[in-house]
Write a protein that binds this DNA or RNA. Structure first.
Lengths: 232, 232
DNA sequence: ATGCCTATACTCGTCTACGAGTACTCGTGG
DNA sequence: CCACGAGTACTCGTAGACGAGTATAGGCAT
C-alpha cells in the first residue's frame, strides 16, 4: 500500500513528528504516543515500532544520536531526525492534507456486499450501528467540550473532524434506514423477494453483463479521486 | 490487524461474496471484481489474491470444486464456498455493518500533526483539498444520478455513502479553513508565533505534562468506540 | 507455418506487520 | 535480604501483503 513512500507506515509519520520536536529512543516514542492518546488508543505494535524505526534509519530519515545507558536501565539508542527526514515529513504531511482519499474501510465494503443478508437483518444491523454511533457521539461531544475549555482548539481539530464525520455518518444512516424500511429505496422489493424465494433478480445479472460488455456507452471517470495513482 | 478473523483481509470478504453467488477460479474472481469496479479501481494485488484464497481454503471457508482445464487455457482450480464460509461471511458482514469504527486514515493522522507546518501553508493545503473534493463530488454526484436512472438504488448505497461522507468532509473543511483564516480558532496565534519565532508555545508543554501525570482528574472514556477490542 | 503479441492463470521471493517472548532493573513487603 | 511483581527496552520468528516474473495457449498477420 502506498509504496510511493520509502517508509509507508503511518506510524512512521508520527515518529517523524515526535523526533521533529526532540531526539528520543524508540521506547520513549511509544510512551509519548500512548500518553498523548494518539493513534487509536495505541495497542502499541512493538514489532512495527522497531521495524519502522529501522527503516527510517535505513532511508536516512533519522540517525543515531547516541547510544548511552542513562543511569540504570538497559542500554538504549537515541535517534534524531535528519534534514531528509524533515523534508519527508513536510512532504508527506502536505500530501495527506491536500489530497482527498476514498474511504477504504470495512463499512464501505460491507455495504456493497450487504445484499447477501436479508433486508430486515440489514435494517437491524444498521440500526444497531446508528444507536451506538449516537451514544458514542454524545459522549465524545461532551469530552470535546470539556477539553475545549482548557486547551486551544487548534490542538483538537482532529478530534473535531472525527466527531463531525461520525455525526454525518449517523445522519446518513438515519436517512437510509428510513428509506429501506418504508420501501422508498428502489430495489428493496427485489432484494426481499430474492431472500424469500431464492430467485436471483434480473438487475444483478444486468449489472454483470453490462460490466462484461464494458459499459462503453456510460460515463466512466476512472481516475475518480483526482488521480493519485502511484507514479512509478 | 483485526486478528480476530482467521482471514482478516477485506479482499477475503469480497471473495466470499463472489463465491456465495457461484463457484469460480481465482483469476475469474479478480476479473469479476475488476469489472464491477469494486475495491478501489482495483490495482489487483495478485499476490494477496492467491494468499487470501489459500488461507480461506486453509480455514475451511472455501473448498476446491474441480481442477479442470476447460478447453484451452492453462489448468485452473475452481473453488466453492462452504457452510462455514457462508457463516463467516454472514458474521463478518454483520459485524462490519453494526459496529462503527474510528477512521484510521492518513488525513486524521496528518491533521493531528499539522502543527509541524506553518498555519498559512496548512490553509493552502486544506484549500486545495477542498477544491479537489468539491470538483470530484460534483462529478460523482452526476455519475450517481446517471446510474440511479437505470439501476435500483439498493445497488448504489455504498456509492451514495461515500459521496455523503465526502460532502460532509467538504463542509467541515470549509468551516475549519474559515476559522483558521479569521483567527476564530483559539491557538492559531501561538501556532503562528511558534513558526515565526521558533518559540515553543506553553500549551504544548502543558499537554505533555498533563499527560505524563496521567490526567486522572479528567474524564477518561477509554474504550471510546464502544469497546471492540480484540478479545484475545 | 512461424514468429510475435496479447490474454490467461499463477508462482515466487521479498519486504512488512506484528505479537509473544526475553532480559534486565528497580522497588517493596515479608 | 531476597522473592516477586511491575516497569523498561527491545529481539525474533512467523504470518501476511504484494509485485515482478513465468509459463502456456490462442489469435493473427505475414
Amino acid at each position: 500500500m502506498a509504496k510511493r513512500r520509502k517508509v509507508g507506515n503511518l506510524l512512521a509519520l508520527s515518529l517523524l513528528s515526535l523526533l521533529a520536536q526532540r531526539p528520543m529512543y524508540p521506547y520513549e516514542m511509544a510512551q509519548t504516543l500512548r500518553v498523548r492518546g494518539k493513534e487509536q488508543n495505541f495497542k502499541i505494535n512493538w514489532g512495527s515500532l522497531y521495524t519502522v524505526v529501522a527503516n527510517l534509519e535505513k532511508y536516512g530519515f533519522i540517525r543515531e544520536s547516541g547510544t548511552g545507558r542513562e543511569g540504570r536501565q538497559p542500554e538504549r539508542t537515541t535517534y534524531q531526525i535528519t534534514e531528509q527526514g524533515f523534508a519527508e515529513l513536510r512532504d508527506w504531511l502536505s500530501e495527506l492534507l491536500s489530497v482527498p482519499e476514498d474511504e477504504r474501510g470495512g463499512f464501505v465494503t460491507a455495504l456493497s456486499e450487504a445484499g447477501i443478508l436479508p433486508p430486515d437483518e440489514v435494517i437491524g444491523l444498521l440500526t444497531t450501528r446508528l444507536t451506538t454511533l449516537d451514544k458514542d457521539n454524545a459522549r465524545k461531544q461532551a469530552d470535546l467540550a470539556h477539553w475545549a475549555e482548557r486547551l486551544p482548539r487548534a490542538l483538537l481539530i482532529e478530534a473535531e473532524y472525527q466527531l463531525a464525520m461520525r455525526v454525518a455518518q449517523a445522519g446518513w444512516l438515519r436517512g437510509v434506514i428510513a428509506e429501506i424500511v418504508d420501501g422508498t429505496m428502489s430495489g428493496v422489493d427485489s432484494w426481499r423477494r430474492m431472500h424469500e424465494t431464492g430467485e436471483v433478480p434480473p438487475e444483478f445479472v444486468e449489472l454483470d453483463e453490462r460490466a462484461m460488455r464494458g459499459w462503453d456507452d456510460e460515463p466512466r471517470h476512472d481516475g475518480a479521486d483526482s488521480g493519485h495513482e502511484k507514479d512509478t
